[in-house]
Design a protein around this nucleic acid. Structure first.
Lengths: 243, 243
DNA sequence: GCAATTCCTGGACGACTGTCAAGCTTTCGT
DNA sequence: ACGAAAGCTTGACAGTCGTCCAGGAATTGC
C-alpha cells in the first residue's frame, strides 16, 4: 500500500515519472469518457460510480484510484467534453467570406449540434444547474461558460465585420441569447419535436442579424446609455487551459 | 386503515367530502411550501423526503399520505410556485402607457426577481434540466415553460403596440432570449456578482427594443423567409390550470 | 527471473434513500 | 358522548450510495 497515487504523482516531478503521468492521464481520460457516456444518459442526480464503472471495462473501486472523489471525476468529465465544444465553430469563422454565409452556416451548425449531441448538451445544462446549488462546481462552470461566450463572440464579431456594421450587444448578452435559444430547442427536440432543429437554424439566423446596431432603432426604448461594441479581434480558441 | 386518501377523495364526489377536499388541498399546499423551501435550498439531487419533513412541522411519513410519491410532490411544488410567477408582470403591462416606460419597468421587475427570488428560480432551472432526462417531468415543465412564454409575449407584444411597431421574432424566440439573459445573470448573481441585477435590467431594456422589426435591417442576414409577428391581443393569465 | 511498484478487483462499511404499514391521537358525524 | 374516520408518528424494510481497504494480478526496473 502506498500513498494515494493522485497525490504522489502530482507531487513529485521525478525524472522517470513522465511515462507514468502519461499513462495515468490516459486512463483518467478513458474513465472520464465512460463517465460522460453514463452521465449524458442518466443525468447527474441518477448517476452512480458503480453505474459509471459498469459502462467501462473496470470495476467500481478503480475510480477512487484515479479520482479523489465523485466531484473531481464529474468536473473532469465536463471539462474534457467542453474543451472540444469551444472550437466547434471556429472553422466556420475562418472560412466564411460574407455575412450571410456565416449566419447560415452558424445556424446550420447549431442545428447539427442539437441533432447529434443532444444528450451531451443536456448534461452540460444539468451541470450548470448543479452549479447554482453546489458551490464547488461554480468556478469551473463559469470558466466553461466564459469559454463558450468567447466562442460566440468570435462568431458574431466576425459577422459584424463582414457585414460592415457594429454590434449592439455585449459578448455576455450575445451568448445568453443564443444559449437561451439552444436550450429551448433542446427541450423541444428531446420531447420529440422533430422540427425543432430546423426552427433553431432559422431563429439563429434571424437573431444574428438582429444583433447589429440599427441607425434608426425605435426611439421608444433608446437611452444614451446604449453602447456600441466594436468587432475587436479576439484570441483564437486556446483559452481553456487548466487553471 | 383505509384506501389511499389521494385516490378516495379524487374518486368520489360525495356531497360531504367538500370540506375534506379543502383541508386535504390545504395541507398539500402547506407541505408543498415546506418542500419548496427545502428544494430551493438544496436542489433536486440533494433533497430527501426526510429533509423536507424536517423543514415542516410534520414527520416524514405524512408525505406519503398527501402525495403518492416523491415525483408527484415535486411536480406539485414547482407548479404551485410557477402559478404565481406567470402573472408577475401583468400589472406592468396593464398600467404602462408608453413603450419606454414599459421596457424600463420590465427590466426593473426582472432585476428585482433576480435579487429577491434567486433561490426559487434556480430550482426552476434545476427542474427543467431534470426534465431533459426524466420523461415524467417533461409534460409539466413544457406546460410551465409555455405559460412563461405567454407571459413574455404579453409584455413584448404590448411593447410593440405602444411603440407603434411590429415584432421581428416569434413568441418562442422572445421567451428564449429573455430566459437566457436571466439564467446567465442568475449564475453571476449567485457567484457573488452584485452588479448582475443592474446589468440584467439594462440588457433587458436594450434587447426588448431590439425585438422590433427594423425597416432597414442589414441586408446581409435577411431572407424572404423572415416573418413579422403582429402584436395580437393575448388572453390574460388564466391558462395554467391543471390538465 | 526476482523483487518492487503499480494497477485493479471485489467485498465490506456506515450512512442515507423512498416506501410502507402498524398503531397512536385527533377530529367529526350522529 | 361514543364510535368511526381521518390525520399523523414511528420504526422498519430493502436498496443504493460514496468511500475505503486488503489483497490478487500485472507491470516494471534491475
Amino acid at each position: 500500500m502506498t500513498a494515494q497515487p493522485t497525490e504522489a504523482i502530482h507531487a513529485g516531478a521525478d525524472r522517470f515519472s513522465r511515462r507514468q503521468v502519461d499513462k495515468f492521464a490516459e486512463r483518467r481520460a478513458q474513465l472520464a469518457a465512460s463517465a460522460l457516456q453514463t452521465l449524458s444518459e442518466l443525468g447527474y442526480a441518477r448517476t452512480s460510480l458503480r453505474e459509471i464503472a459498469q459502462n467501462s471495462e473496470f470495476s467500481h473501486g478503480v475510480l477512487h484510484y484515479y479520482f479523489s472523489d465523485k466531484n473531481e471525476l464529474i468536473i473532469h468529465c465536463v471539462r474534457q467534453y467542453k474543451a472540444e465544444c469551444v472550437t466547434r465553430y471556429d472553422e466556420i469563422v475562418a472560412s466564411c467570406t460574407n455575412a450571410a454565409e456565416l449566419a447560415e452556416r452558424f445556424g446550420a451548425a447549431m442545428a447539427a449540434t442539437l441533432r447529434d449531441e443532444a444528450h451531451m448538451h443536456r448534461l452540460w445544462y444539468d451541470m450548470r444547474s448543479q452549479a447554482l446549488f453546489e458551490e464547488s462546481f461554480r468556478a469551473d462552470v463559469r470558466e466553461l461558460d466564459h469559454g463558450l461566450e468567447q466562442m460566440i463572440w468570435r462568431i458574431v464579431s466576425r459577422y459584424a465585420e463582414l457585414a460592415g456594421a457594429v454590434l449592439a450587444v455585449s459578448p455576455a448578452v450575445a451568448y445568453a441569447v443564443f444559449d437561451g435559444l439552444f436550450q429551448q430547442s433542446l427541450l423541444a427536440h428531446l420531447t420529440g419535436d422533430t422540427s425543432s432543429a430546423g426552427e433553431l437554424q432559422r431563429n439563429v439566423q434571424t437573431v444574428t442579424a438582429g444583433l447589429l446596431l440599427q441607425h434608426d432603432r425605435a426611439a421608444a426604448g433608446r437611452t444614451e446609455a446604449d453602447l456600441e461594441y466594436s468587432a475587436r479581434p479576439m484570441a483564437p480558441p486556446d483559452s481553456l487551459e487548466r487553471t
